[in-house]
């Protein structure tokens, strides 16, 4: 049984791998801690830019709410892939934002200075105002996942969540510091 328990723990670690691109599963708390900025905002514009050999779609986000990071009214984020002139670069898994739509972004700025969404699309939640409360949606809503801590089957905690619940959770994890 000892061996089995050890094996089970190993399995859980392996289960953290996600589909390609090649991803590592992040929990909501992971994203709150590992992000450098967490904002709610609307996509104002999207323009292609080339950084080195990679074409990015640079999206300007008009921030409406900020939980983490320096207070600015806009954020420029870089999504891998896009069309520039006659060429189009495509990366399977890279999210596509809709101009004018509102999202919650978990963002990360590395040493390059380019701000990106955590985990390609994991740190992106679309806001749905059609319900009585604003609801956050992510690609795999209602999917079943494995909690890496307990090994239990769960519903992705971030997939169906009200904006108020998300805000509360972020503030709780950050200790109330904005």
């Amino acid at each position: 049984m000892r061996l089995r328990i050890r094996v089970a723990a190993f399995l859980i670690a392996l289960a953290g791998l996600l589909p390609s691109a090649t991803l590592e599963k992040l929990t909501l708390d992971d994203m709150i801690v590992k992000s450098t900025e967490i904002v709610r905002g609307k996509v104002v514009s999207q323009t292609p830019v080339k950084l080195g050999s990679v074409i990015y779609t640079q999206a300007v986000i008009q921030t409406a709410q900020r939980w983490k990071g320096q207070a600015t009214t806009t954020v420029r984020i870089y999504l891998p892939g896009g069309s520039l002139g006659r060429v189009r670069q495509q990366f399977p898994g890279s999210p596509q934002l809709v101009a004018g739509s509102e999202y919650v972004f978990f963002l990360w700025t590395g040493t390059s200075g380019a701000t990106q969404i955590l985990g390609l699309s994991q740190g992106l939640y679309e806001l749905d105002y059609s319900k009585s409360q604003a609801v956050l949606k992510r690609g795999g809503s209602k999917e079943t996942m494995i909690d890496p801590n307990t090994g239990r089957v769960i519903t992705d905690e971030g997939s169906v969540m009200t904006l108020a619940e998300m805000s509360s959770r972020i503030q709780q994890v950050l200790g109330g510091n904005k």
């Binding site: 691109a21 090649t22 991803l23 060429v87 495509q90």
Partner: peptide, 23 residues
């Protein structure tokens, strides 16, 4: 084809794709 090592955000280990002419 160029293989590079990039400033990928947490949760993203690798990605790859083609760059093609539109016409």
């Amino acid at each position: 084809i160029e293989i590079t090592f990039g400033d990928l955000p947490p949760g993203l280990l690798a990605l790859g794709g083609p760059t093609a002419v539109s016409e």
